[in-house]
Design a binder for these strands. Structure first.
Lengths: 194, 194
DNA sequence: GGGTCAACCAAGCAAGCGCTAGTGTGACTG
DNA sequence: CAGTCACACTAGCGCTTGCTTGGTTGACCC
């Protein structure tokens, strides 16, 4: 058994688990597959994690934590113009989503598999992240950079961005930043890119 | 055993399966759960479907087929103005997504669980549907109703729309049509709604 | 140099899984 | 009224699942 510590070993295992969860999905990933990927036997897994659920929670927590940090840094780094902040936020979102991809795909698509306690705990993290978005969107609305219903706009934008993990090809011609800029251009009525 | 017919019994079973797949996810839905929901024993299930995979394929085929029909009707019903067609398509998409919700959530989130043959077969259906979208978006781009990269715009729009299944509350204040109109307004640079 | 501790292993249990085999119906059909 | 058919049942096989148990190893510590 083990406390909920963040030993380096555990961090590494979490990273590997994220990869497998993305490849196979949480339910199809067996503890034996996880163990093999980690170079240990299945029983040893339960020294690091109480049960399979806890591995999932660790993956999602890690990913969301990172997203928060990156978004906050990006916001801190840019001036207070609503348009600039919108750009920064979109870029940060895609950067996280497409570089630290695994953890985020898991967070987006395996959320339902969390047990109620883990979900409650992680909800707070997610809410904190979404609060950043709403703040930026509120400012953009207030200044007339974008228009529409506050709630709907943020949902639509999040949808468009999160959906990228389903089709984006990192080896393709477009960088995450280009994607972000194109999306912002699409909704801000400024002159089109290109 | 059974051929790939579309007996009414099978259709009803497919509908029930869709509901369970949404509630529990494909992997967590056991054949015994399916059978119980259908009021039969688990063995009897395999009279209607060759295996569990085939149930999934049936659910997705049904849903995509419906989406195609609804979208085509909606397009046929409206004039040839690109903006009108954009509205019609968005409305149709959300109507399908939010009324025939179960089948579509399965199609969106359990696609990976299909075996290669089923996936190949259903890809054609999906491509046909997406072709409708690209056609409408091309026309809107050509007429300057929207701006940006053809590929990116359609992906972003699909993302925003498909994401609705994760937050939309049918008992809430907004109708699917309002959602569709708000999204179109957001990307078309016309005067904002409300 | 005995004690501690994280990390790992071998072995396996109980439960649940998808699916099969063989059989029994009652409703149509020639 | 024999034959066929869709539909359902009982019973269970063979396998995989998450997880447990009891024990071993090697690095560090006073």
């Amino acid at each position: 058994m083990n406390v909920m510590n963040a030993s380096p070993r555990r961090k590494e295992l979490t990273r590997l688990a994220a990869q497998l969860f993305v490849q196979e999905g949480f339910d199809r990933t067996t503890v034996r597959m996880l163990a093999q990927e980690m170079g240990i036997k299945s029983g040893s897994l339960f020294h690091h994690f109480r049960d399979k659920q806890e591995i999932l929670a660790a993956v999602i927590e890690e990913g969301t934590q990172n997203a928060l940090v990156i978004a906050r840094e990006a916001l801190a780094r840019c001036d207070s113009s609503p348009l600039a902040r919108l750009h920064a936020m979109a870029r940060a979102h895609l950067e996280t989503l497409l570089t630290d991809r695994n953890a985020h795909v898991v967070a987006l698509y395996e959320w339902r598999r969390l047990d109620p306690e883990a979900r409650a705990h992680l909800s707070h993290l997610r809410d904190a992240y979404e609060a950043l978005w709403e703040e930026v969107i509120d400012a953009a609305l207030a200044e007339g950079v974008i228009h529409g219903d506050r709630f709907l706009v943020s949902r639509f934008v999040m949808g468009a961005l999160n959906w990228t993990v389903r089709w984006y090809d990192p080896d393709g011609p477009r960088s995450p930043d280009e994607l972000a800029d194109e999306l912002v251009a699409m909704i801000t009525r400024t002159a089109p890119a290109a």
